[in-house]
Nucleic acid binder design. Sequence first.
DNA 1: AAAAGCCCCTGGATGC
DNA 2: TGCATCCAGGGGCTTT
Length: 271
Amino acid sequence: MPELPEVEVTRQSFAKRIRGGRIESVRLGKPLRWPLGIDPAMLVGRTVLDVRRRGKYLLLDLNHGMLLMHLGMSGSVSFAPEQPAAAAHDHFDLATSRGVLRLNDPRRFGAVVYAPAQDAPEAVKLLGRLGVEPLSDAFEPEAFHQGLKRRNAPVKQVLLAGELVVGVGNIYASEALFMAGIRPTLRASRISRPRADRLHQAVRDVLARAVAKGGSTLRDFSNAQGQAGYFQLEAMVYDRAGQPCRVCAAPIKTLRQGQRATYYCPHCQKS
DNA sequence: AAAAGCCCCTGGATGC
DNA sequence: TGCATCCAGGGGCTTT
């Protein structure tokens, strides 16, 4: 479910409110993708200093150690002074003096993992191979083009892999490639510098606009205050197979790449 | 070393 | 109504 915009919107919707909260209790539901990695009782008494984001991970900095939270495909977070009794898919509660942070994740591809320090093995294992942040100055056209030149895989899958640039998932990969006028099946290594520049700009632009719209709510995403996103209403190609291109009216096509659906306009994205 | 497949899991939509 | 099948916003791990 959540790509960079949804994770960032989630972060913004509760970071300030949880900051300074003292952990009072931790409740675990069914197992998530990975074990927490610490006795929950050991977290009680620690303080949440800040909430950051790295790629699609939320990072809760504690006064000692950190929690890495990933929303997987179906995860969403809520934060409120009090929470109702845990329901079927509520698998993690972090009760603090500022409110209760709850992770709901029906498919349980998400996870919450404790790391004793920023550079601890538990953190490096998950964050170590991640590419640059697309909305930071570190995401720079020349290096992006060089990175593309080193990959022979289809550009859509290079974007999804997150080793060049993080945070671009299945929706925004299709959208960015449409904006740049690039066919998703084109080998990354064959993209010229001017076209790489257009893609670089498209990635930044689509992600920033999606954050501004509160993310995309396809079925059930909402931020930590329960508010839905609206960017899906502006999607040019995603989930629009057979519908007319919003630019040229040609029917949007779909194909499968790496077991994921890709959408593109055969006329606007000729190569 | 890079690329392609395989899973993890639940629920909703669709088809017979 | 019931049951089978397919698909879904991710990504680590294994196999080519």
